[in-house]
Design a protein around this nucleic acid. Sequence first.
DNA 1: TTGTAGGCGTTATCAG
DNA 2: CTGATAACGCCTACAA
Lengths: 364, 364
Amino acid sequence: MNDVKAGPEEEWVKSGEVRISDLAAELGLTKGTVSRALNGYEDISKKTRKRVMEAATKRGYVPTTQARRLAMGLTETIGLVLPPMPSQPVNTFISEFIHSVSAALHLHGYDLLVHSANSEESEVEPYRRLVQSRKVDGFIIFRTNEKDPRVNYLLNEGFPFVTHGRTARMAEHDWFDIDGEKAFRDATSHLIKLGHQRIGFVGGGKEFFSAQLRLKGFRTMLEESCLEKVPSLEQPGDLTGQGGEIAAQNLLKQTRPPTAILCANDATALGVMKAARELGFNIPEELSVIGYDGIALGAYIDPPLTTLTFSIEESGKEMVNLLMRRLKSPDLPVISKLASAILKLRGSEGPPSSIQNKNMENCL
Amino acid sequence: MNDVKAGPEEEWVKSGEVRISDLAAELGLTKGTVSRALNGYEDISKKTRKRVMEAATKRGYVPTTQARRLAMGLTETIGLVLPPMPSQPVNTFISEFIHSVSAALHLHGYDLLVHSANSEESEVEPYRRLVQSRKVDGFIIFRTNEKDPRVNYLLNEGFPFVTHGRTARMAEHDWFDIDGEKAFRDATSHLIKLGHQRIGFVGGGKEFFSAQLRLKGFRTMLEESCLEKVPSLEQPGDLTGQGGEIAAQNLLKQTRPPTAILCANDATALGVMKAARELGFNIPEELSVIGYDGIALGAYIDPPLTTLTFSIEESGKEMVNLLMRRLKSPDLPVISKLASAILKLRGSEGPPSSIQNKNMENCL
DNA sequence: TTGTAGGCGTTATCAG
DNA sequence: CTGATAACGCCTACAA
């Protein structure tokens, strides 16, 4: 169990009880020399370096992060602020995202500080505190709004960050996003090819920029396909299951309900499916539903949820890369990365039950 | 937008550019005095304190966390290590848990450091690194195994931590847990009262201690009710949806399949329901399913998942309280907290389709 | 190639 | 009550 075999004269110390000064004393060197040897400076004799290295491993020396960071003037820590709790109950996306970001940061020797916002205070307050107390070197922000106070604050402070999602000021900061417009064009097109002519859309709140782009993709494809645009088929949502339920009721209680519904995210789609079942609609026979995010549990419901998705692991990596670059060279020009989502067919969509053979010629 | 109204002669500085030495110089005091005034020491004249306070707010002084922590010899940070990624895809529990822990820590002025484990290295490796580099003052460990190497390591190091779940060495460390044994007795009893006589159980792997206790509760209630114990109705699982699928297949393909299945967690239950549907079982008419955890999305599937649950927010608070107590007084005796889960009926269980009126008299 | 000395920004312990 | 002075543990010029 315990792999420590203490020699006869050797006294064992608990982890982290060895200081750099101890090593120095033991080796008859100074702290400075030991430090440089350990940190791979060139101006150290091979012999000395070897001695130092060996002593370090032997005594189990590991530098104290706090002290090193203070001396170097950085925290090697990135902040991630979670949105207030109750708003996102049905969301595996967040934990998957945290995981991927944390793993990616770790490769760069950075830590992830997770902070939870409470709904009573302003959205920027947590960021302000973290910046002022200098607990982090940068932020990862997700689910951006078009006019995002967090972005405004950080840009104003000149504090490094990357967003997952675009904003009105996207020309001024690094960002990563998934091309939701294209994704929704694809999904809409898919539904149209299946024969759907009345397609509903449940959005994500007009502050949430990416949701706007998804709506845009939806509308664009409708136009290209000469389907009439019915305003009542576009419902607002809030990216939660509950929001989906309400929107679905508004859609399905209409005299001519849609035969398919596109949702701004998977949580919304789950709510839509729930409401649909309660109103007696069979999925996918009487109603097709498509979500967005690709959360894993979508595969475990009945029927499995067809969704638009992009690897969360990839997203995390990309964002971390952008952020690391920014930290290393603050003055580099802003860059961004736009990834394409994939339509993952799982079974919650299909041809409409009664295909009305309306004229479907290409309008051009 | 910008609430900073700089006076004519007043030069504005970015957040965190004011040092304690600046304040001291400005006020004609020493750093020490300023520090004590700010930290509420008693031996400071009211007048001086007031001057210091005002100057501090006026200049927007906020102490630099790194430096303060180095001086005080603590990190005010708690570590939480996430299990390797692919193992828990269907799990909102984790993000809800992170949220609650982080919020609770924040009330005590502590930060949460989230670290993700990768499956290639030993389970204790992340803990070892965090301890050695002194990045955290303590840990929150969840999903403990009966013989838990992480617990062994930390106990051996004498490093503070609290677990969510019991272990073989639970007498030696603080822990919080939900009384899974009682919970499963309750759930089993509920099913029996509904008329079920063949009840299946999908466990959580025999390393996972709490899952063992759940199994125990299940068995106890079976005995008390004189239902015969059928070994083939107890299947192992791994707390994932996939594990649930496999277990369900083993259960439902038997010549006399169970009419109800109890699952060690909700993720498992989702897998069970998926497999059941694929094998043509209607839920709850032909098969009742009960999960454990109370993840929010359980309410959004069809039928909504009946589950055993305890407020994740409460859990987080309790654990943080235990940990804070330990950090303040390392030598206090070990304490623990056992909470009762509630059976949340949502619709995935009901009476069996054909109630065989076997003799159901009380065996005593 | 190594030692010396100072600094990172606090808090803490003494005198005075 | 307040001012020196010394930690905290490490990094890094600069000097030798």
